[in-house]
Design a protein around this nucleic acid. Sequence first.
DNA 1: CCCCAGTCCTGCGGGC
DNA 2: TGCCCGCAGGACTGGG
Length: 288
Amino acid sequence: MPELPEVETMRRGIAGIVGSRVVDCGPVKCLRKPILISPAAATFRKRAIGTTVAAVERLGKRVVLRLDSADSIVIEPRMTGLVLVTDPPSEEHLRFHFRLQGGSIPEFWYWDRRGLGSVRLFQPKEFATTFGPEKLGPDALVLSAKELRERLQSSRREIKVALLDQRVVTGIGNLYASEILHLAQIHPQRRCDQLQTRHWQAIHAAMLEVLEEAIRYEGSTLGDGTYRNALNEAGGYQNHHRVYARAGEVCRSCARGAIERIVQAQRSTFFCPRCQRPQRKPALGRSR
DNA sequence: CCCCAGTCCTGCGGGC
DNA sequence: TGCCCGCAGGACTGGG
């Protein structure tokens, strides 16, 4: 499930196309239901072919190709999308193709097993409204601890659920939310409005540490093996997960707690009940 | 404001 | 052995 570290790895994998000219692009004939491509192929090609890639950026969990025409191509991998410069895991799930000239990468593909992702081209105004600040919060690697606190301190939501809200902070998904809260030693069900400044500082520090470490390992490739980098190689961070998909196993921090799995907002959360204590309950009755 | 369930989609693994 | 079903979850939507 590509989140910030996986998408950043994808971005780096095709960063070499900067300066190259798009000589062809378009959907790959696919037996499956086609993924979302907009505008329709003819218009897409007309606007993209002949342009030069000015930059390859990451916008939360999306890869953005900035063209010298001022248009932007946004690749959104959702669950199973990949950007590949080499042999795909399977031919049948190739979805979109780019051919380039003038650089070290002559072509690359968008591959997507489940087909929930998209490849879209935006003109500047449309891009601004689609990805404006009210739709997408600051990037997780840029946001400060103070800003994170200010955005959530009055929310009654559980902290783990709030971290998944891309309007608050972009780039964190289900896997890294669990990892971040474990490193920060915060129980995933603690309410945002009951966290103190020191808790927000811990979450912020853990967010940077986990995401940067995961980027160094080129992301997480889970059991289904879906996620791969642009060279179709698995990531390595799954071997360093503290809690994710480790239910019943011993906690690597305290070496005593067994990792638990709970469901929040219809998604799995993993945590260590010893390292991540729940909200202190107000004392009942009166103390003597 | 926030929550919840439903939607898209495929592959995998448990259960019988 | 084979089939069915539940599950995985990012982003979005509609209703409460």
